[in-house]
Design a protein around this nucleic acid. Sequence first.
DNA 1: TCATTAACACGGG
DNA 2: CCCGTGTTAATGA
Length: 211
Amino acid sequence: MLKELQEFYGGLFEPELLAEINEVGIVREVPEGTTLMEIGQYIRSMPLLLSGVIKVLREDDNGDELLLYFLEIGDTCAMTMTCCMGDTMSEIKAITETEVKLVMIPVNNMERWTEKYKSWRNFVFESYHNRLMELLQTVDSIAFLNMDDRLLQYLKNKVKVTHSNRIQTTHQEIAYDLNTSRVVVSRLLKKLEIMNIISLGRNSIDILTEI
DNA sequence: TCATTAACACGGG
DNA sequence: CCCGTGTTAATGA
């Protein structure tokens, strides 16, 4: 039995299901910055996240991207589940934010597990629910918040998923995620620095206070 | 008013 | 030198 699987999903799944996951799952270690899923791509296996962070994006025709949410340990991709069942294409793009370790589960197990294991059904429903909630929060922030607050929420989110007060990224990268320009990001970050909320460095942002 | 775009200078690796 | 950063001017929504 995989150590991480037992550790993180042991309390969630029945031993029998864990054993099945262990049997059919393929462990993959993926470096940072790898595209796991493209828009329009068909999905053949479902990932269970063991460690690391995955960034989920929406992309328009021009290639402009917008961050939807992050996936952490214990999360799975909700889009994958619908895609697997209905044999449809992915509507989103997924990139590894950090180095990631995951278990790939072939889709043909989905249906059987959903019938057989209560814990699996719950997990799927819960994942759906969580993703939907995160998505709603993102929609809210775009609809109701101005860029200052969106940026703050973004930073806060980053701190949460990376478990670090130092964010390693460029202003341009943030601008892409929030679908705005670097000038704005630089200006707002500078403002936050003057307010002693953050400290800026090259390729890094330190969060000084609890946001 | 505020975002975007283009342009430029500064400086660290 | 290259790249990330900070700023400004012009333009538009």
